[in-house]
């Protein structure tokens, strides 16, 4: 290896740096694996259905707003919807202003408490944006293509 220093002192220092990075790296890796659950910002509906989420304590739930599940009250801001990860659905109620991006099929993260009745009472709803960026016409084209595909499959 022509790049390695010939001077033994320098070799030693280089080795020490390598050890330092490996050491710190594995320490942090172990710590993050141990803390994995705590670093997660939210629980998925499946986790909640499996009883992993704490009862009567504030936590966050994340998933998609289930299609056709949003029901708004005509007198107040009260809104009911279901959060899904396609496997399980969790019902959520909320009575404050929803973010701009909130709509059916949109990813959201809601903070609140799970009641005894299995309904999640949210005190804050945040929209989770996806990583796709495209002009409206392109989005329309994608939707049309998907529709066409599903009708073709249906036949």
């Amino acid at each position: 290896m022509p790049l390695l220093p010939k001077n033994p002192k320098r070799r030693k220092r280089l080795a020490l740096i390598g050890l330092l990075i490996i050491g710190v790296g594995s320490a942090v890796a172990l710590a993050t694996v141990a803390l994995k659950e705590n670093i997660n910002l939210f629980f998925s509906p499946s986790q909640i259905a499996a009883g992993e989420a704490p009862l009567n304590r504030t936590f966050r739930i994340g998933g998609m707003v289930a299609d056709g599940s949003v029901k708004r009250s005509s007198e107040s801001l009260e809104v009911y919807f279901e959060v899904t990860d396609t496997a399980k659905n969790i019902p959520v109620t909320y009575n404050k202003i929803l973010p701009d991006l909130f709509r059916e099929g949109q990813g959201i993260v809601a903070m609140g408490k799970l009641g005894e009745d299995g309904i999640f009472v949210a005190s804050e709803v945040l929209a989770k944006h996806d990583e796709n960026y495209m002009p409206p016409e392109a989005a329309q084209a994608v939707m049309d293509a998907q529709k066409l595909q599903s009708t073709l499959k249906g036949n």
Binding site: I21, T32, I39, N40, K128, H129, E131
Partner: peptide, 28 residues
């Protein structure tokens, strides 16, 4: 030495959106 110790944070920043549930969206 401080800078080298902190290097461990760089992959964490990059992969945080894959390793954990985050509000921040994934890589575009």
């Amino acid at each position: 030495v401080l800078a080298l110790v902190g290097v461990v944070n760089i992959p964490i920043i990059h992969y945080s959106v894959e390793w954990w549930n985050t509000l921040h969206q994934g890589a575009t």
